Amino acid sequence: MDLTAKQALSLALALHELATNATKYGALSVPGGTIDVRWDCTPLEDRRSLRFGWREQGGPPVSTPSRRGFGSRLIESTLSSDFGGSVKVDYLPEGVVCSFEAGLNDLTGQAE
């Protein structure tokens, strides 16, 4: 799948932010913690869709932050804006889950 330079940068920044937070506070901050990263291109009604998921497990218990920091805003706004899809970050007690979905037509139709 081809991404524009802006989409590739947006995805790289989001992954960096997720990995940094997992290392400082989440699943990667303790021995045995894991991260499951998955993506696929799936038919969805009359179009194909890119789905991406990040799931942390085995780390310290997670609670919803009292305020939205720069990293959370970066993940949600840049992925949503650059991929034209929906982004969701959930702070589940067992670990952070980040997912987004975008139509592949939206990806290939965007200019650099």
Rank of each mutant, 00 (worst) to 15 (best):
I75K: 05
G53S: 12
N105R: 08
F83V: 02
T20Q: 13
L3F: 15
S63A: 13
L92G: 03
L79M: 14
L79F: 14
L15K: 07
G95R: 05
A5K: 10
P31T: 10
V89G: 07
D90L: 02
S49T: 06
L104G: 00
G69S: 15
A5H: 09
V96E: 03
L28V: 05
P93L: 06
R55K: 14
A5T: 02
P60V: 11
G59Y: 13
T20M: 13
R48N: 07
R55T: 06
N105L: 04
D2V: 13
G84L: 00
L92I: 02
N21S: 09
L11I: 11
G103V: 04
L9K: 15
L11Y: 12
S86H: 07
R38E: 00
T42M: 04
Q110Y: 00
S99L: 03
P43D: 11
D2H: 11
V87A: 09
M1L: 14
A102C: 08
T4F: 03
I75T: 09
D82I: 00
G32Q: 06
V37C: 06
K6P: 01
A111Q: 07
L13S: 15
P43G: 04
R51L: 10
E101R: 14
S99C: 04
L44Q: 06
D46R: 08
A12C: 12
E17H: 13
S86N: 14
A102R: 04
S99D: 03
E112F: 01
D2N: 09
D90H: 02
L92D: 03
A19D: 10
P65N: 14
I35L: 09
R51Y: 06
I75W: 04
G69D: 15
G71C: 04
Q57P: 00
L104E: 09
G26P: 02
L13H: 15
